[in-house]
Each structure stands twice: as structure tokens, then as C-alpha cells.
């Protein structure tokens, strides 16, 4: 196999703060790599078209669709999934708000939802409900009707703004 079309690619990256070295099939998507090779089954494959957001993870500080990026592109990357963000308590307040407001039912979309919501919240301030709805429109939920999700995100934005001001 020539250098320009390799069937397998070696990558070195950090996932949830841990060093990972892997040889991946060139066509493997990030979501399959995380789920099948690393056992990180929190994020899910769903539409496989980059539409629904169930596979959303954080790569180099940005929310990324795990079904639209190849594992081979992860060399040198810093990847965070819901498992790591739970372990280090980054999104604890958001998770608490989701549970308290029942902003999840089946929970299949939730790991991706949380990563997207955290991306918005990290921008600071208290976004308008319309802004929250707009930002979360790349994450589909068929169970909740979205209102509880918007409420939970709004609650956390207020809590964080309150803490920042006090």
C-alpha cells in the first residue's frame, strides 16, 4: 500500500486525559473508534449523517460530530467524551440540572446533548431561550419535546453567572 493511500493509520492522541496510541482502519469514523476500540459507549451513532448530534464529542475544545470525522484525523488531538467529562466533574452541574428537570427520557441523545450544551455555556453569560434553542438545534431529541432541556441549560447558565458575580 502506498504512503498516500494507507489502509491503516497510526495515531497518538489523548482521550479523556489519557494517552492513547492506536492503529486505525483508514475509513473508521471517530464514533466507531471510541465505541468499539476504546469501549467509550456514552456517545452514540444514530443518523450517521451529521444531523442528529447523538455522537457529539469534544475534539480540541470544540463540539464535533463523531460520525463525520475519521479516527485517522485524530493524531495529536485532545478528545473528551461524556465519560471523561463526568469523571472530572466538568459538567456535574449540567448533569444535575438534567436529572432534576427530567431533561432526558430514553437518554440516547443525552451524552451528545451535554457536550453541545457545555459548548454554549462555556461562552459565558445567560443566553436567551431562543439562543439556547438555536444552539441545541443540532441535537435531536424525540422524547422530551426540548422544553425541559432548554430549562436545564438556562438554569445552569444562571447558576454559573451567579457564581461568577458573587
Amino acid at each position: 500500500m502506498s504512503e498516500i493511500f494507507r489502509a491503516q493509520v497510526d495515531i497518538d492522541l489523548r482521550v479523556n486525559g489519557e494517552q492513547v496510541a492506536a492503529r486505525v482502519i483508514a475509513g473508521q469514523h471517530v464514533i466507531d473508534f471510541l465505541r468499539e476500540e476504546l469501549g467509550l459507549t456514552g456517545a452514540h451513532a444514530s443518523c450517521e449523517h451529521g444531523v442528529c448530534g447523538a455522537c457529539t464529542i469534544r475534539v480540541n475544545g470544540q463540539a464535533v460530530r463523531g460520525c463525520l470525522m475519521l479516527a485517522a484525523q485524530l493524531d495529536g488531538a485532545e478528545v473528551w467524551t461524556v465519560e471523561g467529562l463526568s469523571d472530572n466533574n466538568t459538567i456535574r452541574d449540567l448533569q444535575d440540572a438534567f436529572v432534576a428537570r427530567n431533561a432526558l427520557q430514553c437518554g440516547f441523545c443525552t451524552p451528545g446533548m451535554l457536550v453541545s450544551a457545555e459548548e454554549l455555556l462555556a461562552q459565558g453569560g445567560i443566553p436567551e431561550r431562543g439562543k439556547i434553542r438555536e444552539h441545541m438545534s443540532g441535537n435531536y431529541c424525540r422524547c422530551t419535546g426540548y422544553e425541559a432541556i432548554v430549562d436545564a441549560i438556562e438554569t445552569v447558565a444562571r447558576q454559573r453567572a451567579g457564581k461568577a458575580n458573587s
Binding site: T41, H44, F108
Partner: peptide, 17 residues
């Protein structure tokens, strides 16, 4: 509160796949 919600928000659900 739902007893299973905490598990699901931490990505610790166990779906068939």
C-alpha cells in the same frame, strides 16, 4: 427523581449496541 437518570447522563447506559 428517576433512579436511572443519573446513569444515563453520565453515559453509563447499556443499550443493545
Amino acid at each position: 427523581p428517576r433512579p436511572n437518570a443519573r446513569r444515563l447522563v453520565e453515559g453509563r447506559g447499556k443499550y443493545v449496541d
